[in-house]
Nucleic acid binder design. Structure first.
Lengths: 208, 208
DNA sequence: TCGCATGCCGTACAGCGTATCAGTTTCGTA
DNA sequence: TACGAAACTGATACGCTGTACGGCATGCGA
């Protein structure tokens, strides 16, 4: 599992093949199948291993907003360390002990606020959805430049004129200037977006 | 492209291989490479094809909230029709004409509200992030039962006792009752979560 | 009728996950 | 110390993947 995580960190998830992991351990492919049943199990182990990095040891802030903010920052940082995590998100990975601990920790932020189970679950679902979307976008955006090196540059050289042509065709009056001039500061939206979500939730809680 | 979409709809994205698509068209594998350069191009075409289904022909509601809500519902329905879309999300697919039209349409909802570019971009980013997270969760949840049939059931039979054991160990006082008794209505959170996001944004706009 | 462009695809290669089964090492017990 | 069983390792093979290369057939303009 550690070997697989190291490979994924260094070369991406695609580089994690049974044969490659085995080679890293000085073994042959089939040896791994003494410990796992399918490759999917290895991915689940990797997933749970990095989930541990989000767990907070010391007590969380009493304020649920502050607590969720802290957990969100840790999750974001974890994904930046292990960008391949986003490729597992839409892959129906079995949840492990650390994943459960993380959910429990998120639930604990509502202790003492008299929030019923259903509401807590819904709040965490909305929070998790926003987080999922954000980290995916951030990770894939950052992956763009380096991932394939020259190959990507080649493709960009072909694709961009095509896009640029479309853009300049006049069909996109609102989008065109944004692409051409760029939108300064557009990629710095994590805290703000999260605040919007939490603001909406808080207003709803106080309103009822 | 249409053949590939049909296969993905019926059997999932994994079933879309070059050979399979070619077979569906009564051709051999290498024939496809007369029209695309890599499989990635085919995926991009599929992605852009279904993006068209989100576009709205008639004028959007004047109220930007109502307009975003309408677009969100259409996007959700589109993903439910083509659940394999979520597997493309974290895959750095080139944006196509319909994708651009969709962005332009989202930008158009702010016409007349005097919202600057940066703010509009940030609002749409937060909106898109929430949508991404939600549709991924919904699609993967729904995929669970059918995807692999017996195989999945087998795995669940092994995995569930393990999870159940963990849960019953007392380490998860908040999570345990939710798993054991379930949380009624927990999966009906789309409109509410989206409202929270939009509420937060709206409050911020009015506050400044 | 010729020359060439275009579309089609047979073959091949390196890689993948993993089923099967044979060989080797380790260990608990007598 | 000896033996049987269990655990571990891995060689081989199968069917699948994307795609590089090069040859063939057809149709069209001159």
């Amino acid at each position: 599992m550690a070997a697989a995580v190291a490979i994924a960190d260094a070369e991406g998830l695609a580089a994690v093949s049974i044969r490659r992991v085995a080679a890293e351990l000085g073994a042959r492919a089939m040896t791994l199948y003494s410990y796992i049943e399918r490759k999917e199990d290895l991915l689940a182990l990797m997933h749970d291993a990095i989930a541990a990095e989000v767990l907070v040891d010391e007590p969380l802030p009493d304020d649920w907003r502050e607590a969720l903010l802290l957990l969100a920052r840790r999750e974001r940082e974890m994904v930046l360390r292990h960008p391949w995590r986003v490729e597992l998100i839409s892959q129906r990975i079995e949840v492990g002990p650390n994943g459960l601990r993380h959910v429990e920790q998120k639930l604990s932020v509502f202790d003492g606020f008299g929030i019923d189970r259903l509401t807590a679950w819904r709040i965490l679902a909305a929070y998790a959805d926003y987080m999922t979307g954000f980290v995916i976008r951030e990770a894939t955006d950052r992956r763009a430049p380096r991932e394939q090196g020259i190959n990507d540059a080649e493709r960009a050289a072909v694709a961009e004129p095509y896009i640029r042509e479309l853009i300049e065709g006049g069909e996109f009056p609102r989008l065109a200037p944004m692409i051409q001039e760029g939108v300064r500061g557009a990629d710095d939206n994590f805290e703000r977006g999260l605040s919007w979500v939490l603001d909406g939730i808080e207003a709803d809680l106080h309103g009822r």
